[in-house]
């Protein structure tokens, strides 16, 4: 018999693996609502992944094993990341001091292999996308790490589960300005890392302006399915970090907590859809500026925290 907390942790994990692609559906529906369209079905991402899984793969003869490795390593990295992130307040299945660094490293590893696979095709477009992706994430990563540092300082805890387990209403009263700054920084990182609109337009089909999509142009079939599912899980992980801070209600009882958390995630997806509907993509030159701004917000929060 597995202990109850482990059971609950596994349940949450299953929820993440099942519900993650739904976020894309919600985002697309919100956008469609703003534009006055009907929009794709909420479950479109599931259909896409299922379709891709049934297909065969065509692999360019110029590529090597690195190209095949990209999607597989990417998906396994975020799947491992899911094990580290606490969902809905209760601890994650795996938790140890310093695991937030591991989470950032896993995301970096995923990026490294996606970029390597893109470079392996030898296509100049994919090289360009890879270079942009690396440039943006080099700026987004410090913002993420400094935000974690703020949380660690405030809760005097070093593991993600303890950090988010302790975020409560009292903490919000004590250090509201810092928390708001961290939330803003995390939201910018969330948009940048998931290639959403102010940074990258996921629906564009103009190679010159693509960042993330251009890197996966040569992938097809199950490989592309892995990539799509991996990006859904990545969005779920980064979204969970935000929702865990915004909804600091724990241990009322398990089911309302889970329900609140999932509602929070869906609301976050709606927020992303709204941002995408009201904003245009930033010019590429201005993207680093916004990311430096995010780092600035996080550092400001840390300074306030250290000073107070």
């Amino acid at each position: 018999m597995i202990p109850v907390t482990t059971q609950m942790a596994l349940l949450r994990l299953a929820a993440a693996f099942v519900l993650a692609p739904l976020l894309f559906g919600v985002i697309n529906r919100t956008q469609a609502l703003f534009a006055g369209r009907k929009g794709p079905p909420l479950l479109q991402m599931y259909f896409d992944i299922a379709k891709l899984m049934r297909k065969g793969t065509v692999i360019s003869r110029t590529t090597t094993w690195v190209f095949r490795l990209g999607p597989i390593v990417g998906l396994s990295c975020v799947a491992t990341g899911c094990l580290l992130v606490p969902f809905a307040g209760l601890p994650a299945p795996i938790s140890f001091p310093g695991d937030f660094v591991v989470l950032v490293a896993l995301l970096a590893l995923m990026r490294f292999f996606t970029v390597s696979a893109a470079l392996d095709t030898g296509s100049s477009f994919e090289g360009m996308g890879a270079s942009r992706e690396v440039q943006f994430s080099a700026l987004a990563e410090p913002a993420l790490l400094v935000s974690f540092a703020v949380l660690a300082r405030q809760t005097s805890a070093l593991s993600l589960s303890e950090m988010f387990g302790q975020v409560s209403v009292i903490f919000w009263q004590q250090a509201a300005p810092s928390f708001i700054l961290v939330l803003a920084a995390l939201f910018i990182v969330f948009l940048a890392e998931n290639a959403r609109i102010p940074f990258d337009d996921p629906n564009t089909h103009l190679e010159l302006t693509m960042v993330h999509e251009v890197m996966v142009l040569d992938h097809g079939g199950p490989d592309l399915g892995f990539i799509l599912y991996g990006s859904a899980l990545k969005m779920w992980i980064l979204g969970a970090l935000i929702v865990n801070i915004v909804i600091p209600i724990h241990e009322i009882s398990v089911w309302p907590d889970i329900f609140l958390f999932i509602v929070g995630m869906l609301l976050l997806a709606v927020a992303v859809g709204v941002v995408e509907s009201v904003m245009a993509r930033l010019r590429l030159l201005h993207v680093p500026q916004l990311l430096v701004g995010a780092v600035g917000l996080a550092i400001l929060a840390l300074m306030l925290m250290l000073g107070a």
Partner: peptide, 22 residues
């Protein structure tokens, strides 16, 4: 931290940073 006062002061700091960035 006193909530309204400090929040407004943090807003002043954010505006300073924005002035440097626009």
């Amino acid at each position: 931290m006193a909530f309204p006062m400090d929040s407004l002061l943090v807003c002043v700091v954010l505006i300073d940073l924005a002035l440097l960035a626009v």
